[in-house]
């Protein structure tokens, strides 16, 4: 691990995950997160959980068929993808969200005005809200930024007993992912996160299609920021050009009216 590396990431190998849930427990312990109250069916700690302000990472359960048509269980670990060009940061009008010096996407609650635009703009719908609080904050995976600043792995990847989670440099992880795919034809020939939304720091490889695991496959490869910039780049033109045009028009039409003999002041 090099010093001041802002290009860290985690590779999740779906094929190697046994669904033990150690990562979710480690996450709760390290980040001191509480537990959701179980619902009527008792689903608070099982595989039907959802990301919430208290669940920064979850493991979901899928009964799928592998490349040979055999029934298999496949698990998907969900958490913030830590995009290279995050939609949440682009849309945040308070600059509360930012990429910190360790490359993690984090939120500063002192600046957050609570508009929740990040929640709706995130292609993976990751940011969650503390709905039960009077002054809530956005909650999500922070990629254990204090741990990785100290050169350690994220708590989830540190405890993974099967090697399904590998923490490291994103470029090296991408090379590793491609090597694994090349060596084993049962993998889907795509590293999820390599290009999605302009690239994410969390990468996925799997032997069952990603959409069957519940990952959104319609995320455009263009960063969300580009969509917004396509409009926002016109703002200076609209205001400066429009201002000049309106001022000129205003003076011209007023004068024309005066010349026409209806001379009268403005309101």
């Amino acid at each position: 691990m090099t010093e001041a590396n802002t290009n860290r990431g985690v590779l999740f190998d779906v094929k190697q995950c046994i669904g033990c849930g150690s990562c979710t427990v480690a996450c709760k312990l390290w980040n001191d997160l509480g537990y959701e109250k179980p619902d009527v069916a008792g689903n608070a700690h099982g595989f039907d959980v959802e990301l919430t302000d208290k669940n920064w990472t979850i493991v979901t359960y899928n009964r799928e068929k592998d490349a040979n048509g055999k029934d298999v269980l496949r698990f998907l670990k969900n958490q913030c993808m830590h995009c290279k060009e995050p939609a949440c940061i682009s849309v945040c009008f308070a600059h509360a969200l930012y990429i910190d010096e360790n490359g993690a996407v984090v939120c500063d609650p002192a600046k957050c005005a609570g508009c929740r635009y990040c929640m709706i703009a995130c292609p993976y719908s990751v940011p969650k809200y503390e709905w039960d609080k009077v002054f809530p904050s956005i909650q999500k995976c922070q990629m254990c930024d204090s741990k990785i600043a100290a050169g350690e792995a994220t708590s989830c990847s540190a405890v993974c007993p099967t090697g399904a989670l590998t923490f490291g440099d994103r470029d090296e992880l991408l090379a590793l992912a491609k090597k694994k795919i090349a060596a084993d034809p049962s993998y889907v020939n795509h590293v999820y996160g390599e290009t999605e939304g302009g690239g994410t720091r969390w990468l996925y490889i799997s032997d069952v299609p990603f959409e069957k695991l519940g990952l959104p496959i319609n995320v455009p490869n263009t960063p969300i920021n580009d969509y917004l910039h396509g409009y926002l780049k016109y703002t200076p033109v609209v205001f400066l050009g429009g201002g000049a045009l309106f001022a000129a028009l205003s003076i011209y039409t007023k004068r024309r009216a005066k010349v026409a003999g209806h001379g009268e002041g403005d309101e």
Partner: peptide, 26 residues
Amino acid sequence: IEIGRWDNFYTPIYSFAFTSPLYEVF
């Protein structure tokens, strides 16, 4: 009343978040 942190309603004024359309709106 719609924003979750009404005590922070003024923070966007000096955020200069030029990448956000909501900043322009605000």
